[in-house]
Design a protein around this nucleic acid. Structure first.
Lengths: 208, 208
DNA sequence: TAAAAATTAGGACAATGTCCAAAAATACTA
DNA sequence: TAGTATTTTTGGACATTGTCCTAATTTTTA
């Protein structure tokens, strides 16, 4: 097991503190203090605080890219499972989602990494829902407008469930948050699912 | 028409700038500059920036309190109309919602005003949904779990639609945002509404 | 072992929110 | 109306923030 480099130490310590206290409320000097190094040493690896945040965003993007794309035989279970994994990644880098709007508007480096993913995300959700229709998990009579509604609604939820969770459950653990918000997500699909789809949804919720 | 007091000028100017640029990115010196007064003059009326924000929260709370409570004869139209009015107030003080989590966790004065309203809000939504059931607008067979789902889901959406809107539509006007997010809200109820309820929902959406 | 490169330290800088004492303007009172 | 008290406004000080830069130190390379 190799010793961590200074850069890794800074990244990990920053992520830990950002997740706990919020990005805006962790100072460079505090991070340095925890690691018993000087601030100038941090700025050597990360010239600005935004660079640390950008590194976090990049790691999240990479993590999400390792989640395999849906095949043509996508089932409701797989779809839910994929959502669950994405949520897991979001939780790991949750500091990003608690200050979402703020980050996007004032951190160009974050914007650069995240924006391209965003459009892709809409399309992926839409494509997956269509696959679920084709494969008999979602109601085949869903029109485009309802599909758009579901995509919008899912996007909104998946962006802000962590913020909501922070407000509502304070600093509850991952388990509590997952139980609540994955159920919320799954129930969202319920009215538009076929009998087969609903069976998968119910099983997914039971397993939470 | 009486001349505005200094305090009112400060409040209005701050709200305007907060809404446009975000609370965290408007400095006391900038507000002072716009009004051609000195910073010390602001702190005379609002000792800290948090006090300005708290004043904004209070005004929002007051505005929402003027929206009449639902009577026992609540209809789907009225329910949607009430939601629309609340959303209008949120838009007026939208700076608060773009930095929601941040505010709640680090501004005790905001927390004090908002938290009590929050629990009340859950109960109100729940009560109103039950009224809609009783009055034949929502499916009478809704169980408690589905009701909880709807309440959670509505709460999440009504807290974060403004954040989402900022990310997705950038600085689109009120009209664009309303068209999209009120429809999203209304469609949310659609699967659980009765035929009568759905008629109201469809009319509401058409009128947007 | 000496030179070069990478890393770390330490302090300076402008900007921020906050605070305070003195000046100015206004209101009040005899 | 003149003098006093109160409210309002000013201008600058303060600690803290992220950032930047130069010099010292350590590590790597030749």
């Amino acid at each position: 097991m190799s010793k961590n480099t200074t850069k890794e130490n800074i990244f990990n310590q920053a992520l830990r503190m950002f997740n706990e206290q919020g990005i805006e409320y962790v100072g460079m000097r505090e991070i340095a203090k925890e690691l018993d190094i000087r601030v100038g040493n941090i700025t050597y690896y990360f010239p600005t605080k935004d660079d640390i945040v950008a590194a976090i965003v990049t790691e999240l993007a990479d993590a999400n890219n390792t989640i395999l794309e849906a095949g043509d035989d996508l089932s409701m279970s797989t779809f839910l499972q994929m959502y669950s994994e994405t949520s897991s990644n979001q939780y790991k880098y949750r500091c990003l989602f608690v200050s979402f709007v703020y980050l996007m508007e004032h951190n160009p480096k974050v914007k650069e990494v995240y924006i391209p993913n965003q459009e892709k995300r809409y399309k992926t959700i839409r494509k997956n829902l269509k696959l679920l229709m084709q494969n008999g998990y979602m109601d085949a009579s869903l029109n485009d407008r309802t599909l758009d509604f579901l995509v919008s609604s899912i996007s909104l939820m998946s962006r802000f469930w962590l913020s909501e969770g922070r407000l509502r459950f304070n600093d509850a653990g991952k388990r509590t948050l997952f139980k609540h918000y994955l159920e919320l997500f799954a129930l969202h699909l319920h009215p538009y699912a076929t009998k087969q789809g609903r069976r998968d949804i119910d099983r997914f919720i039971d397993d939470l």
